[in-house]
Amino acid sequence: MLKIEKYAAIDIGSNAIRLLISTVTTPENKPTLFKKTSLVRIPIRLGSDVFVDKVISESNYKRMLKAMQSYKSLMELHQITKYRACATSAMRDAENGAQLAEEILAKTGINIEIINGDDEAAIIAATDLHDLINTESTYLYVDVGGGSTELTIYHKGKTHTSKSFKIGTVRLLNNLVSEEDWQSFEAWIKTNTKDFSSIQLIGSGGNINNIFKNSGKKMGKPLSYFYLSSYYQLLNSLTYEERIVQLGLNQDRADVIIPATKIYLTAMKFSKAKNVYVPKIGLVDGIVKSLYQADAN
């Protein structure tokens, strides 16, 4: 018997808030299909408040509340079976994060889970990479957000190890990443990849998706280190306004794309990866998979 359900995932990040509506179709004796029905992204940069002032501002809270009210309506219209809302680096670092989550629950009925870095890495690891991953190869999965970067190593089709680092695009824009942070990042990658002869990168996040789209590459084809390095030089050669006009970047993307590219290039350098694959999946996809797996168990 064919079973069709709709799940929703909300990702409250440091640079934007996303809602993914996913249609989950389970045919009899066949693999389950996950189809992105709708993806809404609202650029609310909570990280600019939190990483500098330690709290979410009143103005950004009001915008976040309106976003949650809108998402609540969209979920009702789509007749969602189940949802999960996860807040990451900005809300977990905000002194008023838990309080605002309670207020949003009271006003919208949406329960926001403020997850830690390990939980975030585990959810991202739940994303379905079987179509991309060669079970005989080793991959370093790099998910770059506004407040943190999650690293996961896959070896022979299974999760080998993962870790979250407070190195994110909004933190870098505000000069809030220390030399010690970069040293820890380098040491972890080198230590955990040294036993593997060859590593390939998997990149996720809005910035690497944008770079891949502009590259004109076909899905499944990787970006080379040389290409990414050349694109990084191009980005740095343009002003903020030129990046918007000439490259067609959104206002909230035109600044963070530079530190994001730096993070990917740094990960490639330390792991000695020559290519990065961009499957266009992220935390919201992992949330949907976690909801499905919870129902299946």
Rank of each mutant, 00 (worst) to 15 (best):
L74G: 01
S70D: 14
R63Q: 15
E76M: 10
S73P: 00
Y61V: 04
S59C: 00
R63G: 02
Y71R: 02
S57R: 06
M64W: 10
S57C: 02
I80F: 03
S70R: 11
A67I: 08
H78K: 13
E58Q: 11
M68N: 12
Q69S: 11
Y83P: 02
V55T: 12
R84Y: 06
L74N: 03
L65A: 09
M64E: 10
T81K: 14
N60R: 14
S73N: 13
A67C: 15
Q69L: 14
R84E: 10
H78I: 00
K72R: 15
A67T: 15
N60A: 08
I80D: 03
M75L: 07
A67Q: 03
K66E: 15
K62I: 08
A85M: 06
Y83D: 07
L65G: 06
M68G: 08
M75T: 01
A67M: 07
A85N: 05
R63D: 12
K62N: 14
R84L: 08
L74C: 00
R84I: 05
Q69H: 10
S59R: 09
L74K: 12
Q79F: 05
R63M: 14
Y61Q: 10
S73V: 08
V55M: 07
L74M: 15
V55Y: 07
M64F: 12
R63N: 13
K82H: 10
Y83H: 11
L77M: 06
